[in-house]
Design a protein around this nucleic acid. Structure first.
Length: 240
DNA sequence: AATATCCCCAACCGCACTTGT
DNA sequence: TACAAGTGCGGTTGGGGATAT
């Protein structure tokens, strides 16, 4: 008997795959990605699942354009830390390292280069300035001496008070569809907690199967079996 | 209208680090 | 202590849409 092992899927995720992944993560939490990849029925690697979750499906994520505040923060923090994208991302709630990295490449790097080019010797102080691509932002902003400068607490403080600009949040639909009101309610970003350093550390999922039945979930390597309480039937992803 | 070019961003890859046995 | 598995991070690529020619 010949079993043809299906090749691991790569490339863009389908809506169905997203739903399967979301559902599985809700069951088991954000760990053991290889396991999640296996039991979800997705023909993806654990790494791929994790990436999709972290960069796109995570309920705490913001989507859409960077705000002037965020833009300013990215520039400031990049000047300070360089390409430490994950570190920078922790200062921007709801933004991922990947998003910031992409943003920097397309927007800020160009601006930084322009700035460098335009910088006259007389103005070459330590003051950090940049050209904003936002019409509502002053074309040149001096960061030095502002609240951005100084301790990390000062930096994060400017993010307080405006957690609501998450317009056009496409994942809302998916979360609705999978009946996760508690997650939706937790989508509000951490507006005032400076300890919430990780942008993804936002209120997340309810206790998962790991917490209740850690052993039960572990002993299913070769043959995928799942206790009925997880709503899992053999050969298919959970809850589908 | 057709083609070329640019821009954006999701996703992959490889490596390093962490954790468990 | 050594090894393996899992996870996180930064760099890079490729596809698709928007814009320019």
């Amino acid at each position: 008997m010949v079993t043809v092992r299906e090749e691991t899927r790569k490339g863009p995720w389908t809506e169905q795959e997203d739903l399967q992944l979301v559902c599985t993560v809700r069951l088991f939490g954000e760990r053991r990605w290889d396991f999640i990849a296996k039991v979800s029925g997705l023909n993806r690697t654990g790494k791929s699942c994790r990436l999709r979750w972290v960069n796109y499906l995570h309920p705490g994520l913001k989507h859409g354009r960077m705000s002037p505040h965020e833009e300013r923060l990215i520039l400031e923090l990049h000047a300070r830390w360089g390409n430490r994208w994950s570190r920078i991302a922790r200062r921007l709630p709801g933004r991922t390292d990947n998003e910031i990295k992409n943003y920097w490449r397309t927007h800020m790097r160009k601006k930084a280069q322009e700035r460098k080019r335009n910088m006259s010797p007389s103005s070459s102080s330590s003051s950090l300035t940049y050209q904003s691509c936002y019409p509502d932002t002053p074309s040149t902003i001096g960061v030095e001496g502002q609240e951005l400068h100084g301790s990390s607490g000062c930096i994060t403080s400017i993010l307080k008070g405006n957690p609501s600009d998450m317009d056009g949040y496409p994942m809302e639909q998916i979360w609705m569809e999978i009946e996760a009101p508690e997650v939706l309610s937790g989508m509000g970003l951490d507006g005032g907690n400076d300890n919430a350093c990780s942008s993804l550390a936002a209120p997340l999922l309810p206790p998962t199967a790991w917490d209740y039945y850690p052993e039960a979930c572990w002993k299913m390597d070769e043959e995928i079996k799942m206790a009925p309480q997880f709503g899992y039937s053999e050969g298919v992803g959970p809850c589908f």
